[in-house]
Amino acid sequence: MYDIIIIGAGPAGMTAAIYARRASKSVLVLEALSYGGQIINTPDIENYPAAAHISGFEFATKVYEQAAALGAEFVFEKAVDIIDGGSEKTVVTTDNSYTCKAVIIATGSRNRRLGLPNEDELIGRGVSYCATCDGAFFRGKTVAVVGGGNTALEDALYLCDLAAKVYLIHRRDAFRGDEKTVSALKARETAEIIYNSTVTALLADKRLTGIEVTDKDGGVRTIETDGLFVAVGRVPENAGFAKLIKLDEAGYIAAGEDCLTNVPGIYAAGDGRAKNVRQLVTAAADGAVSAEAAVRYISEL
């Protein structure tokens, strides 16, 4: 039996592992994909204290090495369920099950999909969720961005430097995002903003060839495009634990800055928790807070 099982090896989970190991607790970190979480997608982090510039990959690798050197065990399996037996809890993965005294859920979030039928099969064949990752494949081509928040605006602006034509499809008639980005985009000749519209179908022949766009009056038009960048927000990854753990309406774990969930001995850390600022530094902070709470819980068992 482990003292603490941490689900998710993103910045929150790995920071929790560092704190828990330094408090001499045995730690198992379960990770579905690879250590690092979302941040491995970004080439440059500029807002983490003491690191003016660092790539997401380097950041993730440093935190991983720090946690592993302290003796945290990492197993690459996806957690699918938590069974609460009071002082003994079981975490079930796709391949095994493990017991522990306390659990920290640090499963973060993932990109929201549009929910169109052939969307999954077109990922990497024209459909993307990350402009800075995949923009380079569309040099001199036509692309569309769907979304209305800051990410969508910044993605569109970024793509204007690469693509020959950039459509931005927004379901409202105005942007609520950063005014400066909106006017910068409007000033670009290659950018065309389509308001009051949603993407209702993906057209493809081995790869994406176009999109069907429907406006609020029901008018449908087809736009030929090589790429579609989906920037319609992020969603938490907590559905699997909803039986046991209380979530808010948006699916985030209902836990405050103290990281306490409705179940004693189970804690929530990072982007998957209800909070206002979803960044590395707040994920790391949650890692520390949740690990301290778990250590205290174990000492009182």
Binding site: I123, G124, R125, G126, V127, S128, C130, C133, D134, A136, F137, F138, K206, R207, G227
Partner: peptide, 17 residues
């Protein structure tokens, strides 16, 4: 390497890595 082999990437419809 898709930076050096962009023709291969295009031929096999690779748009995410």
């Amino acid at each position: 390497n898709v930076d050096e082999q962009n023709e291969l990437a295009y031929e096999y419809n690779v748009s995410s890595i």
